Computed example of a mutant assay.
Amino acid sequence: MTTPQPIRIGVMGTHSTGKTTLLKRIEMELRAHGIPVARTGRLGKRAALAGLPKMQYHTAASTEWIITQGIADEIAAAARPTPEPIHVVLADRAAWDALAYFHAAQEWRQETPDPLERERLRLLASTQVLKYHLLLATVLDHGLPVESRHDYDARYRALVDHHTHALLAENEIPHQRVTSAPNNQTDAVEYVLQLCLNQATP
């Protein structure tokens, strides 16, 4: 007997644009409607704990680790043993997200990209595109201050935002943009809820 695959929703975007908060809101709404859901995340922190560089110091190796670990996390989340099967997997940092961070890091460091290495990582990320029922891409709002506890490089943060949306456009990947406007985020949560209610197996 074939087990139905869960709905997979990924989020991507530069840091401190509300990715995790958005997924938490979606998770709460889905659970409130009785839909079993699993959420992945903390890839950047886990990569750092493994001794890999992060943010503007990302390398091809750290990018590959994040992409492959994210894939493994999503597979494990979908197979997680619970009283009932998981119907929705929410991926905090979809596969293309790591690629955007890497491209931004190379530009920030003013490095000349290795075309073969970039293409290898692009192909790796592209294997996941069809697995997502929906991709949400947050948009950087320069008018919103970053919490003082975060010592982010503003130029790098903006570069990640640029490369996130450039990659999605260049590769013609269907996605939904999510801005910082409260109504826009609420609409995104409602859209995901309706998608899951229509497609999730009761």
Rank of each mutant, 00 (worst) to 15 (best):
T2Q: 15
H165C: 05
T2R: 11
Y132D: 04
T21W: 12
S62A: 08
L159K: 05
P53C: 10
L130A: 14
W108P: 00
G41W: 02
A76W: 03
Y156L: 03
I71R: 11
H163W: 10
T59A: 12
R93T: 12
T164V: 15
T3N: 08
Q185W: 00
P182V: 05
L90M: 14
Y191R: 11
P182S: 08
P85H: 10
K131Q: 12
T14L: 03
P83A: 09
R177A: 14
A78M: 09
P145I: 07
T63L: 05
L30A: 06
T68S: 10
P36Q: 10
R177C: 07
A100W: 02
P4A: 14
V146C: 08
I7P: 02
Q110T: 10
T40V: 07
H58K: 13
H87L: 14
P83G: 07
L52W: 08
A166V: 10
P115M: 06
E147P: 06
M12Y: 00
Q106H: 13
Y132M: 06
T164C: 15
E74C: 05
L135S: 02
A94I: 04
A158I: 06
L193S: 01
M55Q: 10
Y191W: 13
I71S: 05
L116Y: 08
R109Q: 15
R80M: 09
S62I: 07
R122A: 13
N183Y: 04
I86K: 07
A188H: 03
E147C: 13
A169G: 07
L23Q: 04
L134D: 10
C196N: 04
H150T: 04
S126L: 14
M28D: 15
H163Y: 15
W108A: 13
D151K: 12
Q194E: 15
W108R: 13
C196W: 03
V88H: 04
V88T: 15
V160D: 02
R46W: 05
P36K: 09
L134K: 14
V160A: 08
E74G: 03
L197M: 11
V160R: 00
L22Y: 03
E117H: 09
Q199G: 09
D114R: 09
L159D: 02
N184H: 10
F102H: 13
R46N: 10
V89C: 06
W65N: 01
R120Y: 10
L134R: 14
N198K: 11
A169D: 13
T21N: 11
D151C: 12
A38V: 05
D153E: 11
T112R: 14
A91F: 02
K19R: 13
L90P: 00
T68V: 09
G44P: 07
Q56S: 09
T20Y: 08
T82R: 12
W96G: 00
V139K: 06
S16D: 08
Y132P: 01
I173H: 01
G44N: 08
E27M: 12
E74A: 11
R25P: 01
H163Q: 14
A169S: 15
A77V: 02
H33N: 15
Q128E: 12
L99E: 00
R93W: 03
Y191G: 01
T40N: 10
Y101R: 05
Y57I: 03
E74I: 04
H163T: 09
L23K: 01
